[in-house]
Computed example of a mutant assay.
Amino acid sequence: MWIKICGITSAEDAGIAASESPDAIGFVFYAGSPRNVLPEKARDISRNLPKGILRVGVFVNPDWDFIEKTASLSGLDMIQWHGPAFPEDWFLRIEKLGLPWIDVRKVPPDAKEWSGPLAPFRGATHVLVEQSSARLPGGNGQSWNYSLAAELSRHVPLILSGGLNENNIGEAIRNVRPFGVDVSSGVESSPGKKDRQKMKRFFEEVRRHGNT
Rank of each mutant, 00 (worst) to 15 (best):
A42T: 02
K200L: 09
R196H: 13
L73S: 06
V181W: 08
I45Q: 06
Y30E: 01
G138T: 04
Q142V: 13
V58D: 08
P108L: 13
W64S: 05
I53T: 09
E204P: 06
P84Y: 02
A149D: 02
V127F: 00
H209P: 00
P191R: 08
E95H: 06
P109Q: 03
P178T: 10
K96M: 09
V129P: 10
S185D: 10
I102W: 12
L97R: 08
G32Y: 06
G139P: 12
S33L: 11
T125S: 15
G57M: 07
F86H: 09
V58Q: 13
F203V: 06
V187M: 12
A31N: 06
C6M: 07
M199C: 12
Q197R: 12
D77H: 15
S184I: 11
P157R: 13
G192S: 03
S21R: 15
W144N: 05
N36D: 15
D182N: 10
G57V: 00
P109S: 13
G210Q: 14
A119Q: 10
R55I: 02
D195K: 08
K4I: 07
V129L: 06
K193Q: 14
I16P: 03
P87W: 03
V56W: 03
G210K: 10
R135K: 13
A134R: 13
L158Y: 01
I5W: 09
W144Y: 04
P108H: 09
P50Q: 10
P178V: 12
E171N: 09
L128T: 01
P87Y: 01
V206E: 13
E113R: 15
A119Y: 13
K194W: 05
K4R: 06
W114F: 14
P157Q: 14
G141C: 09
A17H: 11
F86T: 03
Q197D: 15
S19K: 15
